[in-house]
């Protein structure tokens, strides 16, 4: 089984907002970073993966299984971390563990206490007294203690300081040594992804713009800079977005080859960061 998560033509409509025709595959054994601006539909998509929301149309499959018939088997294999605390605020970590642990057949107490020690988490203090970073670590300790094959995280790094973000990435990287593990996480801090992501899924206005390996992204997308005199209605077709200034233009292309054919050496190419791509595509894809 190559795809751990498979969304086929998934659509969910809300008042004034909808997620449309999502076709998304998450590859086993890799880290997929899920990016997009706030309100692009990332959380909605994650909720459909977790069966917290049911799509109006389309198909959601995890591990090749359907939620209708295999809900428990699927969730048994998922570790989840959400943005914000979902555990009973007044309880301490020990009690939360006592509630969560029996839900999983594969719960590993030794592993749990190992993470508790590694993260320096207090067992007897109410969760509501934890800092944001500690709450996140607590969620993570719980998510990782039942040998989950798929770890789904919704904005795990939001609101965390750089030091903790780094620690989290280190930890995730360690988790990936085990080859059958898959991580899917959404973030709008794209720098988190440079180090760890293998695939990037990018959402914009409720649609999936692309889901490509970081190599494909690097090979397809680039920033192109050059003089304004080079631009005309024909040559501009190679770009997804063009920004003009009196000093020249800066543009994003998703087809480096075509730009090279059109402009040759008259323009300068630069690697487009994920942030560049997000920024230039914010109006959606429209070849100018």
């Amino acid at each position: 089984m190559e795809n751990v998560v498979e969304l086929k033509n998934v659509t969910k409509k809300f008042k004034g907002f909808s997620v449309k025709n999502i076709d998304l595959q998450v590859k086993q054994g890799f880290v997929t970073g899920f990016i997009g601006a706030n309100g692009a539909g990332k959380s909605t998509t994650i909720k459909m993966m977790m069966n917290l929301l049911k799509p109006d149309a389309g198909e959601v499959k995890l591990f090749g299984l359907d939620y209708k018939t295999h809900e428990k088997a699927i969730k048994e294999r998922i570790g989840f971390v959400y943005d914000g605390n979902i555990f009973f605020e007044g309880l301490n970590l020990k009690d939360i563990k006592r509630i969560v642990a029996p839900a999983y057949k594969q719960w590993d107490d030794t592993l749990f206490y190992q993470y508790v020690e590694q993260f320096k988490l207090p067992l007897n203090k109410a969760i509501k007294t934890f800092s944001k970073g500690m709450q996140m670590k607590a969620s993570l300790a719980i998510a990782l203690s039942h040998h989950a094959e798929l770890i789904i995280m919704d904005e795990p790094t939001a609101g965390l300081d750089p030091i903790f973000r780094r620690e989290l990435l280190d930890l995730l990287q360690e988790l990936m040594i085990e080859g059958n593990r898959t991580i899917f996480f959404s973030t709008h801090i794209t720098t988190d992804l440079n180090r760890i992501a293998d695939y990037i899924a990018f959402m914009q206005n409720g649609e999936l713009v692309f889901n490509q390996s970081i190599h494909d992204v690097a090979e397809n997308y680039a920033l192109v800079k050059g003089g304004l005199n080079l631009l005309d209605s024909d040559t501009e077709k190679a770009f997804v977005h063009v920004h003009r200034a009196s000093t020249g233009f800066e543009a994003l292309t998703d087809n480096i080859k075509a730009v090279k054919n059109t402009f040759g050496d008259t323009v300068v190419f630069e690697r487009a960061s994920l942030e560049d791509i997000m920024y230039y595509l914010k109006g959606g894809i429209h070849h100018v």
Binding site: Q173, D198, H215
Partner: peptide, 16 residues
């Protein structure tokens, strides 16, 4: 080293 260990040591993604 295995590609996964190397990725961790170099702090880069596995696919690389």
């Amino acid at each position: 080293p295995s590609m996964r260990n190397l990725a961790k040591d170099l702090q880069i993604s596995v696919i690389t």
